[in-house]
Amino acid sequence: MEFTIGLVAAILGSALATGLACAGSAIGIGIVGQTAAGVVSEDPDKFGPTILLQALPGTQGIYGLLIGFLILQRTGVLGGNIVELSILQGVAVLFSALPIAIVGYYSAIAQGKAAAGGVLLIAKRPEELGKGIIYAAMVETYAVFALLMSIMILFNIQF
């Protein structure tokens, strides 16, 4: 494998998308977990619904992983047929990672807070789980948009 500046820039994009989005998800899931543990200490039967809410901020990590994977695949780092990238092409690929890297990180944390609120909601009103989920899912919309834009940029760079 011959490394060029363009290729390394693309790999940096892959690393940022995965690393930042996963870090955000980890923080978000941690926030929900703390709240959930407190609620479950009162009522162990709420483990099921709280774990559902805890899973919600995890999707940003998956989206980040997805973009990271797509970048490695498109540039041929995965699979072995390395694409020759100019510096500008490599930087463009790096930029394609930024939407999901930035939004993934912040939205996962925000979603974690909303989901933690949802956990408190079901602590008092277990029948309202659906509403708690929807509140958290409202945040996720923006991670989905960022993912979409990352995909669009990545797929429309010609090389």
Binding site: I62, L70, Q73, T141, V144, F145, L148
Partner: peptide
């Protein structure tokens, strides 16, 4: 907002491909 239909559909497929790879 309906663009999420595309994004989520792609996500499922790409993750499946990633697992296979």
């Amino acid at each position: 907002s309906y663009s999420r239909l595309l994004a989520l559909g792609l996500a499922t497929g790409v993750i499946a491909i990633a697992i296979n790879t």
